[in-house]
Simulated scan of single mutants.
Amino acid sequence: MTRWRAVAGGFALAACSEALVFAATGRVTLVGGLAGSALAGYLAGEEPAEGAWHGLMSAMAWGIVLIPGLVALSVVTDAPLPFPIEFLLPLLDTAGEATAAILLSASLPNVAAGALGSLTRRRDDTRGRSDEHAGRRPAEGEPEDAR
Rank of each mutant, 00 (worst) to 15 (best):
M1I: 06
T2G: 10
T2K: 15
R3F: 00
R3G: 02
R3A: 02
W4F: 07
W4A: 05
V7P: 13
A8H: 12
F11P: 09
F11Y: 11
F11I: 04
F11S: 00
A12D: 05
A14S: 02
L20C: 11
A24R: 10
A24H: 08
R27A: 12
V28R: 03
T29E: 13
T29L: 09
T29Q: 11
V31Y: 05
V31W: 05
G32I: 06
G33C: 13
L34D: 07
G36V: 01
S37D: 10
A40N: 04
Y42L: 03
L43P: 15
A44K: 02
E46Q: 15
E50P: 07
E50K: 12
A52R: 10
A52I: 09
A52D: 10
W53K: 12
G55W: 06
L56C: 12
A59P: 07
M60Y: 12
M60A: 15
A61C: 01
W62A: 14
G63E: 06
I64E: 14
I64G: 15
V65L: 13
L66F: 12
I67Y: 10
A72G: 08
A72M: 08
A72E: 02
S74R: 12
V76C: 12
D78F: 01
A79D: 03
A79V: 05
P80A: 00
P84C: 11
P84S: 03
F87I: 11
L89C: 04
L91H: 10
T94Q: 14
A95M: 08
A95S: 07
E97G: 08
E97D: 11
A98R: 15
T99C: 13
A101F: 04
A101L: 03
L103W: 05
L104A: 14
S105Q: 13
A106W: 10
A106K: 06
S107A: 08
S107T: 15
L108S: 04
L108G: 09
L108T: 14
P109G: 03
N110P: 13
V111F: 13
L116K: 02
L119I: 00
L119K: 06
T120S: 07
R122T: 11
R123W: 13
D125L: 15
D125M: 15
D125A: 14
T126R: 15
T126A: 14
T126V: 03
R127C: 06
R127I: 02
R127H: 06
G128I: 12
R129L: 05
S130E: 08
S130W: 12
E132T: 08
A134P: 13
G135N: 08
R137H: 05
A139L: 13
E140A: 14
G141W: 01
G141P: 10
E142W: 01
P143V: 05
P143N: 04
D145V: 10
A146L: 12
A146R: 07
